Simulated assay, not measured.
Amino acid sequence: MATYVITGRNSSNEPLVSVSISGISQDAPVIQEIDAVNALREFLGGVAGVQFVAAQKYEQVITNV
Rank of each mutant, 00 (worst) to 15 (best):
Q51G: 04
K57M: 06
Q32T: 00
Q32G: 00
P29G: 03
L40Q: 04
D27G: 09
D27Y: 01
I24E: 01
G23C: 03
L40Y: 05
I34R: 05
A55V: 08
Q26D: 04
G46E: 05
A39L: 12
V30K: 11
A39N: 08
A48K: 14
A48V: 09
Q32R: 02
G23I: 02
V50R: 06
Q32E: 05
P29N: 05
I21P: 03
L40C: 11
K57N: 04
L44N: 09
F43Y: 09
G45V: 04
I34S: 08
G46R: 09
D27F: 01
N38E: 15
E33P: 11
E33W: 06
I21S: 02
E42I: 04
V50Y: 06
A28R: 13
I34G: 02
G46F: 02
F52L: 07
L44V: 09
E59S: 15
E59Y: 05
K57V: 05
P29S: 08
I31P: 01
I24P: 00
A28H: 11
A54V: 14
A48E: 15
R41N: 06
N38Y: 07
Q51H: 12
Q26V: 03
A36K: 04
F43V: 07
V30R: 13
L44Y: 07
S25Q: 10
I34L: 07
E42T: 12
E59H: 08
Q32Y: 00
Y58V: 13
A55F: 09
K57L: 06
G46P: 01
G45P: 05
I31K: 02
L44T: 08
Q32D: 06
V53K: 11
V47Y: 10
V47T: 10
A54T: 15
I24F: 07
P29W: 02
G23D: 12
Q56T: 10
Q51V: 13
K57E: 14
V47L: 15
I21V: 14
V30P: 00
A39I: 08
Y58D: 09
Q32M: 00
I34V: 08
V50F: 05
A28D: 11
A54H: 11
V30T: 13
I31V: 15
V30N: 07
A36G: 02
I31D: 01
V47E: 06
A54Y: 10
G46A: 02
A54R: 11
I31C: 02
R41A: 14
G46N: 14
P29K: 10
A36L: 15
I24D: 00
A28N: 12
V50C: 06
G23S: 13
G23H: 07
G45L: 04
G45E: 03
A36I: 15
